[in-house]
Amino acid sequence: MSTGNNSQLESNQRVTRFLLVVVVVMFCFGFALAPMYEALCKAFGINGRFVEIEQGVYDADKAMQQVKADRDRQVTVQFTASRNQNLQWEFRPMETSVVVYPGEVREVKYYAKNLTGKTVVAQAVPSVSPGQAAKYFNKIECFCFTQQTFKPGEAKEMPLRFVVDGKLPKKISTLTLAYTFFDTDQAGTKSKAQVDTVLRVAHNAK
């Protein structure tokens, strides 16, 4: 073996130790990208993700007082529904679009029916377009806060109460809210660690 003297061995070990620490840190950083990305998405409305923090803490009464001030502005909210992986459900908004005043609390309903012969637990995932409108779209009550269990053939009308924040940028006059229903079995999300954060927020709302 031709490696050098002791001091060289020591400095080799020092460098190796340091680099191994960097490796571990970067491995963790890879995972840390997940919460960082989520935070960024919420802050900037990437992918039309919802600003969950706003839910439940939104003061509907105070919002109602703003109604007057914003009467001169109208926003069209479109609704659409999708099913993931060909989930055999009928799923559609009962109204395809409504016109609202910013600050006004509105309720719309979605209709869903389980067409399969078995009980299905499904999770609705919301998305808003354009993305930067997401953080101004506040849900007060939503069937997407929890997983929904449907017996074979069961049909439900599911309410959604929301407020469009008056701070919505002026150039946005139409926004679209889309829900996608995922079969939690198919999506492989049996342990629902991340769903739970959504649930927690929903609990706060009560």
């Binding site: 999770q123 995932v125 939690t184 492989g188 999300t189 629902k192 769903v195």
Partner: peptide
């Protein structure tokens, strides 16, 4: 059963 990359979770 994690869902880092699945919207469902």
């Amino acid at each position: 059963g994690t869902s880092f990359f699945s919207a469902a979770g």
